[in-house]
Amino acid sequence: MQYRNGQRLPLEGGGALRLSVNPRARRLSIRIDARAGEAVAVAPSERRLGEVVAFARTKAAWIAERLATREETQALEPGAVVAWLGRSVRLEAVGGAGAARLHETPDGPVIRSGGEGEAFARRVENWFKRAARDFLTARTEVHLRTLGQKPVRISIVDTRSRWGSCSPHNRSIRYSWRVVMAPPEVADYLAAHEVAHLVHADHSPAYWSVVQRLVGDHRPHRRWLRDHGAALHAVGR
């Protein structure tokens, strides 16, 4: 059977498998897209999609278990409590259509926003994107200076798989805004991770030594994203 990039296949036990071609992938892999509620099979080329489908079928029980236990969606709505750089922040609605703003109160930080329903959620998400840009830009600049690197162009996006990506050839870095909900040391690690790719484009021991120079032991931060990343991706969906 001929498979194609983006194709969705039914899985035994329920759920769907989405086929994805990533030329940068070094191996066949399966991941869970918590927001879409499906498994994603990744291959480095379209001609190897048949191999990754066969691999996914051997992992059907694991995939079903992961899909069944994925994080529940957390809406960005009044009364919700979300995280910002490791702090708990309550969301509050105010009259009008004003932009979301952070307020420090005796009971802790609060994000107050105008709008209703989707408009409220969109304003709150925009606040998080601005907060992510501010924090990640500042930490990126620190790590660039440490390595003697020139400035880069920074974009804030909402990716489903990667927390960030670096393109050394055009000196650009993309970050998922959702990482700003993680503790600050984890978000800082992400900035170091991407800046280090300006020195080494791979994940060789030499690359990880650069990351360690920037943030010390990076393993706890990688583990945190692996253990809690699905919860961050569930926010606002």
Score class of each variant (00 low, 15 high):
Gly14Ile: 10
Val180Gln: 02
Leu11Val: 13
Gly236Val: 11
Asn170Ser: 06
Ala25Gln: 02
Val235Lys: 06
Pro205Leu: 01
Val110Asp: 04
Ile30Cys: 10
Ile111Arg: 03
Leu85Asn: 04
Arg35Gln: 13
His233Leu: 15
Ser161Trp: 09
Glu77Asp: 09
Ala99His: 11
Ala99Asp: 15
Ala234Arg: 04
Arg90Ser: 09
Glu104Ala: 15
Glu92Gly: 02
Gln149Ser: 11
Asp33Glu: 12
Ser167Met: 12
Leu11Gln: 03
Asp188Tyr: 04
Ala182Phe: 10
Arg222Lys: 14
Leu67Asp: 04
Pro78Trp: 07
Glu141Ile: 02
Ala56Thr: 06
Thr159Trp: 01
Ala80Gly: 06
Arg4Glu: 13
Glu104Asp: 14
His218Trp: 15
Arg130Trp: 12
Ala121Met: 04
His218Met: 11
Arg222Asn: 09
Ser45Ala: 13
Ile173Pro: 00
Pro220Ala: 10
Ala100Asn: 01
Arg18Trp: 01
Pro151Glu: 09
Trp62Val: 14
Leu9Ala: 09
Val210Thr: 05
Glu185Trp: 03
Asp202Ser: 11
Arg87Ile: 02
Pro10Thr: 02
Glu125Lys: 15
Leu17Ser: 02
Arg31Leu: 14
Gly108Gln: 03
Tyr175Val: 03
His233Gln: 13
Trp224Arg: 07
Val195Tyr: 07
Ser29Met: 14
Pro10Ile: 05
Ser167Thr: 15
Ile63Leu: 02
Lys150Asp: 14
Val195Gln: 06
Val195His: 07
Arg139His: 08
Glu51Arg: 13
